[in-house]
Amino acid sequence: MKVFAMLIGTVCGAGYLKPAPGTWGSLAALPLAWLLHRSGGFPMLLMMTGALFILGVWATTELTKGKEDHDPSEVVIDEVVGQFIALMPLSWSAWTKGLDILVLWPGWISAFVLFRLFDIWKPGLVGWADRRNDPVGVMLDDVWAGIFAAGGVIVLAGLAHGVFGL
């Protein structure tokens, strides 16, 4: 079980990449989100985000048992879940409008940058979740960072398409 928890928690070893394993985890999420969207659209991305949240809590629990560090840097499944959430407005738009999700590439960049910003900065609810110092908090701070980033993606898309007419 420990090997399975390690594979999930580190996203098949992406969490061992240095420097900035969280950024590597977020980068690993991008092709995974694309594959999920291509295989089942927005519903598939949404369903797998929920499943990975649950698996992430389990894997983090397993990997931190008996250790003082509640959020080891190699555990990056939380970044994958948060990055998936940040990408959801793009998946929804592409799915409902019948678009190739890759034509929304500026949104991918915005989702990535905003998610990393909120995950590092930890404003408000992101910081609150991080301070829980437990496996749920490890996952939840990235959920909140993803929600904030998704909101930012929506605002930026509104500005680009509504205000600037791009």
Rank of each mutant, 00 (worst) to 15 (best):
Ala5Arg: 08
Leu27Phe: 03
Thr61Gly: 11
Ser26Pro: 07
Pro43Leu: 09
Pro21Lys: 02
Ala14Asp: 14
Ala28Phe: 02
Phe42Ala: 14
Val155Arg: 04
Met47Ala: 15
Phe42Ile: 08
Val80Met: 07
Ala150Lys: 03
Leu30Gly: 03
Ala160Ile: 03
Leu90Ile: 10
Thr96Ile: 10
Ala160Gln: 07
Asp69Thr: 04
Gly137Phe: 06
Trp144Cys: 01
Leu140Pro: 14
Asn133Arg: 15
Ile154Asn: 01
Gly152Cys: 03
Leu125Tyr: 04
Leu114Lys: 00
Gly107Thr: 00
Ile109Cys: 01
Leu45Ser: 02
Ala59Gly: 07
Trp105Glu: 08
Ile109Arg: 01
Lys2Thr: 14
Arg131Asn: 13
Phe53Leu: 13
Gly165Ile: 04
Leu27Ile: 09
Arg132Ile: 06
Trp95Gln: 15
Ile101Ser: 02
Leu140Val: 09
Met47Lys: 05
Leu55Ile: 10
Val11Tyr: 10
Leu114Gln: 01
Gly151Ala: 02
Gly82Trp: 01
Leu117Tyr: 13
Val113Leu: 03
Leu63Lys: 09
Ile85Met: 06
Asp69Gly: 11
Thr60Phe: 02
Gly9Ile: 10
Val155Gln: 05
Gly82Asp: 14
Val138Phe: 09
Leu17Cys: 12
Trp34Arg: 10
Leu140Phe: 13
Glu74Asn: 15
Gly22Leu: 05
Met6Phe: 07
Gly66His: 07
Leu36Ile: 04
Phe164Ser: 04
Leu102Thr: 13
Ala33Lys: 04
Lys122Phe: 06
Ala33Cys: 14
Ala145His: 01
Cys12Trp: 15
Trp24Pro: 05
Gly146Glu: 03
Pro106Cys: 11
Leu36Tyr: 12
